[in-house]
């Protein structure tokens, strides 16, 4: 498997540092232990703590990306509805792009393009008297002051920056998906509602914010919940962005280990990947339950099939 250069890195919530000594006292010489204590020691090594921590990395990425993508999507959908033609074309093009090209291409491309773009801008601002070309053959060379992050920055800045690039890549792609969904939802709000608003003398801006936006969510929910599930299922691609996620650690831990390591074992990758499978099945299952509940709440009082069913049940 090749994994191209992205200037992405990962934010590894560093659990290794916080575990100074073995969790269990009897772990001092693992080669003498029986199976069960050996396994307990093995599963509590610093490396495993990093593995457990990477589950949190994934959840953090989801928690940060989802609202940003939703905001991107909202902007895209508004642009696509705009009466100003160039803005509308931009919105339509943005929403169309994810349908034509696999998301993976964006994940590989966006972080490095953003990184080089930002460095180039900073280079123009901070080093105006630099006379060498920025692209020298294969190299992308900017002055030291324009480097992102500065090479003198502490490690956590490098990690955070890489994580931010990964979030940006996810937000761009899923923002486009969300724009699709929200555009459809805005169109689905009954025309009569908007006309009523206009009859009361509301401006276009007022009808949009007071009538369309509050009511569109029930129409957007099925699409958004679907999108959330897609986002969850896209998180293993973090691995391709250089983020030390659960896939990275599963491969690293599962590979066979010689006695150079404290806990030698044969190839256990299958078990680690089974654990990841279970994690994702649980995550999608729980998400579906929550969305089901949310959908019932949002349908309340709406002139839709679901809302009507609730009304009848209550009578």
């Amino acid at each position: 498997m090749t994994s191209p250069d992205r200037n992405a890195i990962l934010a590894q919530l560093n659990f290794a540092r916080s575990v100074p000594r073995p969790v269990f006292d009897f772990c001092t010489d693992p080669s003498l232990l029986d199976d069960l204590p050996w396994l307990a020691c093995y599963l509590s090594t610093g490396k495993h703590m990093a593995f457990y921590g990477s589950f949190i990395t994934v959840l953090v990425l989801l928690a940060i990306t989802a609202p940003i993508a939703l905001a991107f999507g909202f902007g895209g959908a508004m642009a696509a509805r705009s009466s100003f033609a160039p803005l509308r074309w931009f919105g339509k093009a943005y929403t169309a792009m994810v349908r034509g090209v696999p998301d993976i291409a964006f994940f590989l491309f966006v972080p490095i393009a953003m990184d080089q773009g930002l460095e180039w801008l900073r280079h123009k601002v901070k080093c105006p008297d630099w006379d060498l070309p920025v692209r020298q053959g294969n190299d992308f060379v900017v002055c030291d002051a324009a480097k992102l992050p500065l090479s003198s920055s502490p490690q956590w800045v490098h990690e955070g920056y890489g994580f931010a690039l990964a979030v940006a890549a996810f937000a761009v792609v899923f923002g486009a998906f969300a724009a699709n969904v929200l555009y459809g939802a805005m169109q689905a709000v009954p025309r009569g509602q908007v006309e009523t608003g206009e009859a009361y003398g509301m401006t276009a801006r007022q009808t949009f914010w007071r009538i369309v936006v509050p009511q569109m969510w029930v129409f957007a929910l099925p699409g958004l919940s679907n999108l959330w599930l897609i986002l969850v299922k896209a998180t293993p691609l973090l691995f391709l962005l250089g983020v030390e996620d659960i896939v990275y650690w599963a491969r690293e831990l599962g590979g066979s280990k010689t006695s150079t390591f404290t806990y030698p074992h044969s190839d256990w990758r299958l078990y680690y990947f089974l654990a990841l499978l279970v994690f994702y099945l649980l995550l999608t299952q729980i998400s579906e339950k929550i969305f089901g509940r949310l959908s019932r709440r949002l349908s309340h009082g709406q002139a839709t099939l679901g809302g009507e069913a609730q009304r009848k049940a209550a009578v």
Partner: peptide, 22 residues
């Protein structure tokens, strides 16, 4: 349907490969 829709394709590829080589 639950198994294949509920988990990432990426993980399915990894698992399938590991299972096939076994």
């Amino acid at each position: 349907i639950f198994l294949f829709r509920g988990s990432p394709l990426f993980i399915q590829f990894f698992l399938a490969y590991e299972a096939f080589v076994l």
